[in-house]
């Protein structure tokens, strides 16, 4: 399906952000992924036309990166961290349970088109292990039971709120945001950003009355006098 004119306009907006056009290629691939949920030949064609590259040049980039999908992706991409820390703390069991429960393997999609499952490398949320993400929003401290409930809710059309992050939107919408287009939903702007493990040290410091040394008045006076 040829890309829409709106997508072409957006692609040009992306190109305008950078000192050199080719820097727009990664966000443009996110953008074309937003059209049909994966990198289509037409999507590659748009990058070719707008950036003056060959299909081989664009294809070489698109196939290098894990987040560019080569086949239709479900409404929700469920990623289970199975790197060492999450894996040993239960991520391996969560992945095995979901694989069996959903009847799909890595990078495969359920028949209803709702869920694509993948095992993921470290998602940088190790203090919340084991971690699952849905369309890259965090569901922290998961278990086999909670992960099954999560996919049930997703398939039932009642997506739960992420532990940290905005209310879920579909995979295509997230791809659009990854292309650099801001999520304007107020509930996204207000969404929880940090959970208890992130605050563990700070809470303890407050409780104990511990803090870094104060900024010396003399330094402040010198630096800020210059300004005045």
């Amino acid at each position: 399906m040829p890309v829409t004119e709106e997508t072409r306009t957006k692609a040009r907006e992306i190109i305008a952000r950078y000192p050199r056009p080719r820097s727009a290629l990664l966000p443009m691939l996110h953008l074309v992924q937003a059209e049909e949920g994966y990198i289509t030949p037409d999507g590659i064609g748009l990058c070719v036309e707008e950036l003056g590259l060959t299909r081989a040049e664009v294809g070489a980039v698109a196939t290098f990166y894990t987040m560019y999908k080569r086949g239709p992706t479900g409404e929700y991409l469920v990623s289970v961290c199975t790197n060492t820390l999450c894996g040993l703390l239960g991520g391996d069991e969560i992945y095995a349970t979901l694989r069996e429960y959903l009847g799909v393997g890595h990078n495969e999609t359920t028949d209803d088109g709702m869920i694509t499952l993948e095992h993921a490398e470290c998602l940088a949320a190790c203090d919340h292990a084991p971690v699952v993400t849905v369309n890259y929003e965090y569901f922290d401290n998961q278990s086999e039971e909670s992960a099954v409930r999560l996919v049930d809710d997703l398939r039932a059309g009642t997506p739960p709120r992420p532990t940290r992050g905005a209310p879920l939107c579909g995979f295509r919408e997230i791809s659009r945001q990854l292309a650099g287009f801001l999520d304007e939903r107020p509930e996204a702007r207000d969404a929880v950003s940090i959970a208890e493990p992130g605050l563990a040290g700070l809470r303890l410091a407050v409780e104990r009355g511990e803090r870094a040394p104060e900024y010396p008045e003399a330094t402040l006076a010198t630096t800020e006098r210059k300004e005045a």
Partner: peptide, 16 residues
């Protein structure tokens, strides 16, 4: 910021 993770009682971020 030290990130303590895994088999600890209170995993999290501790700035010291």
């Amino acid at each position: 910021i030290y990130s303590l993770t895994g088999r600890v009682t209170r995993p999290g971020q501790y700035e010291a």
